[in-house]
Design a protein around this nucleic acid. Sequence first.
DNA 1: AAAGATATAGACCACATGGTCTATGAAACG
DNA 2: CGTTTCATAGACCATGTGGTCTATATCTTT
Lengths: 234, 234
Amino acid sequence: MRREFKKKSKVLLIDDNYEHLVGIRELLNLEGTFDVVGIATNINVGLNLIKKYQPEIVLLDMNMPEKDGLQGILEIAKLDLDTKVLALSGYDDADLIFRAMKIGAKGYVLKTMASAQLIYAIEEVLNGKIYLPLALSSRFFEYFQQSFREETAKQETEEENLLSYLTQREEEVLELLTQGITYKGVANKLFISETTVKTHVNNIFQKLQVNDRTQAVLYAINNGFLSKKIKLTA
Amino acid sequence: MRREFKKKSKVLLIDDNYEHLVGIRELLNLEGTFDVVGIATNINVGLNLIKKYQPEIVLLDMNMPEKDGLQGILEIAKLDLDTKVLALSGYDDADLIFRAMKIGAKGYVLKTMASAQLIYAIEEVLNGKIYLPLALSSRFFEYFQQSFREETAKQETEEENLLSYLTQREEEVLELLTQGITYKGVANKLFISETTVKTHVNNIFQKLQVNDRTQAVLYAINNGFLSKKIKLTA
DNA sequence: AAAGATATAGACCACATGGTCTATGAAACG
DNA sequence: CGTTTCATAGACCATGTGGTCTATATCTTT
């Protein structure tokens, strides 16, 4: 292992379970390549220690009372010290894993996993990689895909999507409405009279079954009206 | 391996490179546990074969002329036959991997990888799992996190976020506005007079530097006003 | 040729919305 | 204890918005 000659990596532990905290510290000390610069049983104390010691990596328990781990990740990120966060948890809750990774955790390890795997995870993260055990990444991907299925489902079911009944001209008008433009503004942009715009808008209301522009705009946004155009470019 | 006594799994291959296509077929035939029911050098032919043979899994090349692989995944999904798609590609393009997984690929394998790994990937996918080689999942996660950093950045920069200047009451009012409710409706919901609502709304306009409710709602949506509350519950 | 859909536009009206100004009681802050 | 902030609310007015009805010119479809 090449790290042996390097400076030890500074590690900080945050977990509301003191026993577990001490256990991990012992484990890492035995390993010899880590320097556990501090331990804390809650986020706020942990944040202060991070500011003080600037560890390369923080092992952060996700399931804590008071402030939960997700909030912790965000607040550590806000310190802007490129401290890497490895999330620890007792449960393989797909939603929690997903959200932790989404907001920037560099890895997620279950407490039930073998200590060798924890060590490996820490080293991978220290080397700039992202580490998720196979079992967890599988759950992650399922959740990931599901969350997008729901999103795209709206646009796919064109039969039920009232937006599909709009004419081309009405779509143009609606697009301008989603930019918060008045009748007069739309009229100028499209080179038509204000009353014509009103007619179009009224027809749009009928088709979308709404009563005012705000509701129409909200319907458009929630039903993938804007993303149609975005998806073609990005 | 328990599969030996099971019925062979039907596999279909789509790749514009005929040499490669035949190579994989040979490999899978040698393995003995797969039944390659068809091969195609373009998506449209492939789709017809899928309809005809209803394979459990399709190995789909991502880098094809004409219709690209992403489109292919979507069209296979549209057949609604729970055909699993394992994406094949010559390049470990993070964006392509991300998008393929996003729209429902069950795995992604590089052509340069060892054949044993391809076999393993196919079996994992057939067993209902999602398989990404470690090297690719690492890239995937980087891309994943980056795409969310941009999104959350808006909410993090509270100094520039005009929403942070709103009082609690104003936030309540704004939230109701984002549901397309009128002054009168808001007044009833909050048990205050209509004029009070108007005062609040006017103050909101000032703070958000907009001229009407539609613009205010759009500002709120584009600057993470709604996601604040969602993130705490969902 | 007739029917239907679409884009255009005017008239009229009710009312919702937005702008401005003033004012009061409560709570927070120094 | 004064000052500031906030939530409350009234009055007044201009205008934007939405509802309805009618009408014409194209264009497509039958």
